[in-house]
């Protein structure tokens, strides 16, 4: 390859040298030089042909064309990717795939949000129910207390009677003190 290039370059140089001094004249020389680059142009073509030949085997023919007996097609556990799969990162730059990813994310987020709101609403309901129950219980307790108070208020009249009893008790105390006096009289002292 390299020597051919050198030749081509030399030919071109020769052309320039030949053409520059005789710009006005000889078209015949130009004709002579004309065919020279043509073979150089032809030379790369076979090289491209060799490039075609150099293609990896799986590009040149498929396995079906080879007519080989079928092998066990089970992929070993360690090998996840087929040998021809793209290596490295998968970039997302087109609008469609981006929209697809966004739709997926949005659905997930909406679901999350929805469930969060639902849960919050349910919790709020439960809290409300608990609050109502607690209020009811407090009310019943209060009612019970009120009832008892009323009862006691009604019972207080009896108490007053009992107060009267207490006053009579006071009289009894006096009686008792009088009795004590009597008992003191009976007492014998030594000093």
């Amino acid at each position: 390859m390299a020597p051919s290039k050198v030749k081509a370059g030399a030919a071109k140089g020769a052309n320039k040298r030949s053409t520059k001094p005789s710009q006005s004249g000889s078209s015949s020389k130009a004709k002579k030089t004309g065919p020279k680059p043509a073979p150089t142009q032809h030379k790369p073509k076979p090289s491209t042909a060799t490039d075609k030949k150099r293609k990896p085997p799986h590009m040149r023919y498929t396995e079906k064309e080879l007519k080989i007996p079928q092998l066990n097609g089970i992929r070993p556990a360690g090998v996840q990717k087929p040998p021809n799969a793209k290596k490295g990162k998968n970039f997302v730059d087109d609008k469609e795939s981006m929209n697809a990813i966004m739709a997926m994310v949005m659905a997930e987020k909406e679901g999350n949000l929805e469930s969060k709101m639902m849960r919050a609403r349910q919790m709020e309901e439960v809290r409300e129910a608990k609050r109502l129950e607690a209020e009811k219980r407090a009310q019943s307790k209060k009612d019970g207390l009120e009832g008892r108070k009323e009862e006691l208020k009604k019972g207080s009249k009896k108490r007053r009677k009992s107060d009267g009893d207490a006053s009579t008790d006071g009289g009894a105390k006096e009686d008792a003190s009088a009795k004590k006096m009597k008992t003191q009289r009976k007492r014998v002292s030594f000093g």
């Binding site: 998968n90 970039f91 997302v92 981006m98 990813i101 966004m102 949005m106 987020k109």
Partner: peptide
Amino acid sequence: PLTDTETKTLFEKLANYTGR
């Protein structure tokens, strides 16, 4: 450009603030 997992992570974060 971003890879698919990177795009997903980014969108998830942005969606926290923006919604639909």
